[in-house]
Design a protein around this nucleic acid. Structure first.
Length: 465
RNA sequence: GUCCCCAUCGUCUAGAGGCCUAGGACACCUCCCUUUCACGGAGGCGACCGGGGUUCGAAUCCCCGUGGGGACGCCA
């Protein structure tokens, strides 16, 4: 039997980091077993679902490169199927109409909570042999409830958490169709997973409580029960639960913040899963290695610093041409359109090991393509009167020396020697004049990249020549 | 409240009863490299939640406790 997994987000917000990891694991598991990965949009909550959220999820998946073999399927487009199954269940007696009003149910829940009980539907409209049901009120449109077994336990061997058993006494008759006829989440999931032949349900562990209900539903439909894989949640950097109000950001925000998708993916892959001591690996490698046995059952705290490290690693090692492509728009945003000279790829080759995100990288090289912003404190500290004679001399020498890193270095060295200074005494003011700040790669390499004309121009501003 | 889940360095984790004096990675600290900042290299700091069992032997298995989390919707 081929493996079929799915990612089934509800379009009520963007794709966040937890959802992304769930999608990644589902995707990888399908890839690993040459199976299919299905994308299904669970949009039955019409009030909260939006087309913008659908697009945001699609964008997030695309940015991460999580491609799907089937879908996206939209549950709202599958209404006929659901209604058909509900009708069958009604006829088979595995579901029934319930005429309780919302107010009635709220009151019931309230009183049960008061009494210290688990709030549950009390089965007042559940048909039972020998039981007399009240007359159906004409003014209340009924919901449809599933007739959950009263006795026994539901059990499954969760591929992450191990065996989980829940007593049916803990469960109540859940609503599978609202008063307006639209089916509800647990029911749609069951019908879809069944019909789409999903073999492994990989999802967040906030769904473990839904699993026994879904299994009962599946059994009532005589459907095959899939394997369940419940992933524990991802906590924020501060150890707190991620929520819309607190720290849960769109994966697209990572793009905006200068992260590479391969870094985010690699980071996520290692969050809650491991392969010995391996930390850095490609998605191709991940798909070969990925297994359910090494998924952690406990919650994992997100660590931005480790993500930064991975991001830096990928910036340092990725294809230069692609790096240039990605950095260009970020430079433009800073008002520094990359020009013909110096070649962006050459600049990046020298600078990329210094940055751990793309925005920072763009900001660091911007002065090649626009006037540098002079850092006042650095300027005051390094561009001092006693350094100026040497700088002026150097300016003259640079007018005509060979324009190679070695030649430039030699000229600076000779100047330093001639004026009996330490190397930094000349290099630091030079650095600030050319770049605006006191940190840069090797100054001769920077000058070489910058070109004679620009170097002399920026020096001249200070040399009063 | 009821049910369910979880528990190794600050963080992500390795660990399937002896290989554990508990390994790796991020972060942090020191040193080296160096012309500044980085990168890189070499070291260092640092953990099995507590208590009982089982066993010749427990981070690993069992029980209890504690702590954390989740679920209890005509949301998904």
């Amino acid at each position: 039997m081929t493996v079929r997994t799915r990612f089934a987000p509800s379009p009520t917000g963007y794709l966040h980091i937890g959802g992304a990891r769930t999608a990644l694991f589902s995707w990888a598991y399908a890839k690993k077993h040459q199976g299919q990965f299905i994308l299904r949009i669970e949009d039955t909550d019409v009030a909260r679902s939006t087309p913008e959220a659908v697009q945001a999820i699609l964008d997030g998946m695309h940015w991460l490169g999580l491609d799907y073999d089937e879908g996206p399927f939209y549950q709202m487009q599958r209404m006929e199927k659901y209604k058909q199954v509900i009708q069958q269940m009604l006829e088979a007696g595995t579901a029934y109409y319930c005429y309780c009003s919302k107010e009635e149910l709220d009151a019931l829940r309230e009183s049960q909570m008061q009494a210290g009980l688990k709030p549950r539907y009390d089965g007042r409209w559940r048909p039972e042999t020998g039981k007399v049901l009240p007359d159906a009120p004409k003014d209340i449109p009924p919901v449809v409830r599933f007739k959950n077994p009263m006795a026994g336990v539901v059990a499954w061997d969760d591929l992450v958490k191990g065996r989980i058993e829940i007593s049916n006494a803990e469960l109540d008759d859940l609503i599978i169709a609202r008063a307006d006829g639209t089916p509800t989440y647990n029911f749609c999931v069951v019908v879809d997973d069944w019909e789409m032949g999903v073999t492994h349900v990989i999802r967040g562990d906030d769904h473990v409580n839904n699993t026994p209900r879904q299994i009962n539903l599946l059994k009532a439909l005589n459907a095959q029960i899939p394997q369940y894989v419940h992933l524990s949640m991802i906590l924020g950097d501060d150890g707190q639960k991620l929520s819309k109000r607190h720290g849960a950001v769109s994966v697209m925000q990572y793009d905006e913040d200068g992260y590479l998708p391969e870094a985010v993916l690699n980071y996520l892959a290692r969050l809650g899963w491991s392969h010995g001591d391996d930390e850095v690996f490609s998605m191709a490698q991940f798909c070969q290695w990925f297994d359910l046995d090494h998924i952690t059952a406990s919650a994992a705290q997100f660590n931005t610093e480790k993500l930064n490290w991975l991001n830096a690693h990928y910036i340092k090692t990725m294809d230069l041409e692609r790096l240039a492509e990605i950095v260009t728009p970020r430079l433009v945003k800073l008002g520094a359109a990359p020009a013909a000279s110096p070649k962006l790829m050459d600049v990046l080759a020298l600078y990329r090991e210094r940055a751990n995100n793309l925005n920072q990288l763009a900001a660091e090289i911007a002065y090649f393509y626009r006037t540098p912003a002079i850092h006042q404190a650095d300027a005051e500290k390094h561009i001092t009167e006693d350094a100026m004679p040497a700088i002026r001399h150097l300016y003259q020498e640079l007018l005509s020396c060979d324009w190679t890193v070695e030649a430039i270095h030699k000229v600076i060295q000779e100047t330093v020697t001639q004026f009996q200074l330490k190397f930094p005494k000349v290099a630091m003011p030079l650095r600030v004049m050319l770049t605006g700040i006191a940190q840069s790669p090797s100054i001769d390499a920077v000058m070489h990249l910058m070109g004679r004309e620009l170097v002399l121009y920026r020096m001249s501003v200070y040399c009063k020549i």
